[in-house]
């Protein structure tokens, strides 16, 4: 199993939730995972019902069987100062740079520096070892930018290595690329069974493959359970349906009766449902054609809370994702 698991997906598909569940699943039975947030939205803290995460690795959950999930919200500016301090012992010079606006420049304006720092920090966590030479984290899960930007984001170091042809940044960029393009890394895409997210997933996988980045799995999120048999039987008479509803205690079956009035709206809802199921079926087909493992996660209708997160994690383990 790859030690760096990158989770991307179109906006609104729940990639942060899936990344968190994956981190939990991977931590199960005594493992330690680090869940990394790069977009500064504090979605992870909200999911784990914790306070906003500082730029610091912090334990946010205990996994079934004694594992631990740590989380880190990477702040580009602090990561830069961190780097300068770590590699060049530039504590005070770093502060001076900040005063000059160099840090602002580097983290907001300069091409890719921000992304270099974010990917670099994640790769550092992947490679970090303790005094006994063991990896500090068994797995690092990254809640990455959305599908539209993921290839560029992960590939930024290639570009930087090309720009800065020598020097520490060049070396650093190359080291990061070595991790990202190796089997140590797997990029998963989260989608829904809807047209636009599926289209974006298909496009995104093409881009990742073209860039030589290792594509992992397709995770279909918020899959709705089937409620009625599809297709809805068409050989049932409305009068019988009205009678059945009436016999269930929903009012009169005669024309204008309360049960009879339910027939049309209920059948309309069934027709919508059928249309949706057919659409989902088609989208599922498109995903299957990608030749990647596809996993489905059920829709948690009550929204995602901690319990729901653990449920998703269990499901991921059952499906062999973690």
């Amino acid at each position: 199993m790859s030690r760096l698991q990158v989770v991307s997906g179109k906006g609104g598909t729940g990639k942060t939730t899936v990344a968190a569940a994956l981190a939990l699943a991977l931590a199960t039975e005594g493992k330690r995972t680090l869940l990394v947030e790069v977009e500064g939205r504090q979605g992870i803290a909200q999911l784990f019902e914790a306070e906003a995460l500082p730029y610091e690795e912090r334990k946010v959950a205990v996994a079934p069987g004694g594992g631990e999930v740590f989380a880190l919200a990477i702040d580009a500016e602090l990561a830069l100062l961190d780097y300068l301090q770590m590699f060049y012992r530039l504590g005070s010079a770093g502060r001076a740079l900040k005063k000059l606006g160099a840090v602002d420049f580097a983290t907001t304006i300069a091409p890719g520096v921000r992304d270099v720092l974010l990917t670099g920090k994640a790769c550092e966590a992947v490679r970090r070892k303790d005094k006994k030479g063991r990896y500090v984290y068994d797995y690092v899960v990254m809640d990455a930018p959305p599908t539209g930007r993921i290839t560029r984001f992960l590939n930024v170091n290639d570009e930087v290595a090309g720009l800065a042809k020598i020097g520490p940044i060049h070396n650093q960029a190359q080291a990061v690329m070595r991790v990202l393009k190796s089997p140590e890394t797997a990029v998963h895409l989260v989608t829904l069974l809807e047209e636009m997210p599926v289209q974006e997933t298909v496009d995104g996988i093409g881009e990742l493959r073209d860039a030589g980045l290792p594509v992992g799995r397709v995770l279909v999120n918020m899959v709705r359970p089937s409620v009625v048999d599809v297709p809805v039987p068409t050989d049932v008479r409305r009068t019988d349906l009205a009678k059945a509803l009436s016999s269930a205690g929903l009012g009169g079956a005669r024309k204008g009766g309360l049960a009879e009035q339910l027939v049309d709206p209920l059948l309309a809802q069934a027709a919508e449902y059928e249309e949706r199921v057919a659409l989902e079926h088609g989208q599922r087909g498109l995903l299957t054609e990608l030749g990647l493992p596809v996993h489905e996660l059920e829709l948690l209708t009550e929204g995602i809370d901690l319990a729901g997160l653990y449920r998703l994690a269990t499901d991921l383990r059952k499906q062999g994702v973690a």
Binding site: V227, V228, P233, D235, R237, A244, L245, A248, A270
Partner: peptide, 18 residues
């Protein structure tokens, strides 16, 4: 007919509940 209708009605009601 009756049982088919009942089965369908039960499904429609569950769908409605959702």
């Amino acid at each position: 007919d009756t049982s088919g209708a009942q089965q369908l009605a039960a499904g429609l009601l569950r769908l409605h509940a959702e």
